[in-house]
Write a protein that binds this DNA or RNA. Structure first.
Lengths: 163, 163
DNA sequence: TGACAAAGTTAGGTTTGGCTAACTATTATG
DNA sequence: CATAATAGTTAGCCAAACCTAACTTTGTCA
């Protein structure tokens, strides 16, 4: 009997809006309530684009927003944001701690891939990170072993043309 | 002195156009020259959308296309397509053979993630697959071990509320 | 060969997400 | 408190992708 109660089928959200959600979530951690300016900066986007996105998020019931007001997320906004952030962290951790990628490359890749991978993959990825961590504690460090393997392998077949 | 010779900085390509490239590449394998109809079908898109994409690809020098003609890729079109396909296959293989994900879930995920991950990550992923394969040949199968680990772990923490 | 079906294109519309420039509100400061 | 600087909004524009509906080309076959 409450229109907010209609069995939401976890509405689809564009990559772009997920990015805004994530940025707001991160900014709201430090200092409560994000400022439009900082969102724009975090996403390298014009301030006016932020206004547009906030309106969209409000319409979807994800952000508490009114002109000139401070920006927070609703319950469901926080839930969605937390999900995105979780994906992000799992991906980044995998890239860094398993694949041995540089932190900033990993960061960027995670930003993009977080929108592309569903729960099944993410859950297994998390599991895999744990598996690798365990392997470390149990004396045969898979990540370390792989890094060795990778090092010895890379540098091969760089020049396919020259003899 | 040849205008096709201007040091191309590997022009950026949208995810959408990469998808078209990939579809054309795959269709052109069997039967030489892809048909618009089949591209539309492969990508679940209207036929008119394919026409638009083909014009864009032609403008970028990636597809040989003229109205009503048969569709092939140029040299550089093939190169780009092959790159995309390679990413796709590496990702899928990782999802299936390392993470143990179902083939069709992996297929879908690879389709999306292939546009999000750069060469650094892809190269390490490939390396990692090889590492896992080697581990198999050397008698301690990491993939298998992980699947065990995952099985035993999943099913845990399903109900976080009930005691 | 001529007509019809299938394939392809064009025209025109929508949505999303971004931009700049100009305007308005808020905040800070002398 | 007045006013300048900063933050935020609005208006208007653009481009990418997609769509439907109507039209044209091509190819098939009776």
């Amino acid at each position: 009997m409450d229109e907010t109660m209609k069995t939401e089928p976890v509405q689809e959200l564009s990559a772009s809006l997920e990015d805004y959600l994530e940025a707001i979530f991160n900014l709201a951690d430090e200092s409560e309530g994000a400022r439009s300016k900082d969102i724009a900066e975090a996403l390298s986007v014009a301030r006016s684009s932020v206004t547009g996105a906030l309106q969209a998020l409000r319409e979807k019931g994800l952000a508490n927003y009114r002109p000139y007001g401070c920006i927070t997320l609703t319950e469901s906004g926080q839930a969605r944001a937390a999900e995105v952030v979780r994906k992000h962290n799992i991906l980044k951790s995998f890239f860094v701690n398993v694949l041995g990628v540089d932190a900033d490359v990993a960061q960027q890749a995670a930003c993009k891939a977080e929108h592309a991978l569903g729960p099944e993959i993410i859950s297994r990825l998390l599991s895999f990170i744990k598996y690798v961590t365990e392997s470390h504690r149990h004396g045969r460090d898979v990540a370390e072993e792989f890094r060795e393997f990778h090092k010895s392998r890379s540098g091969r077949k760089a020049r396919t043309v020259e003899p």
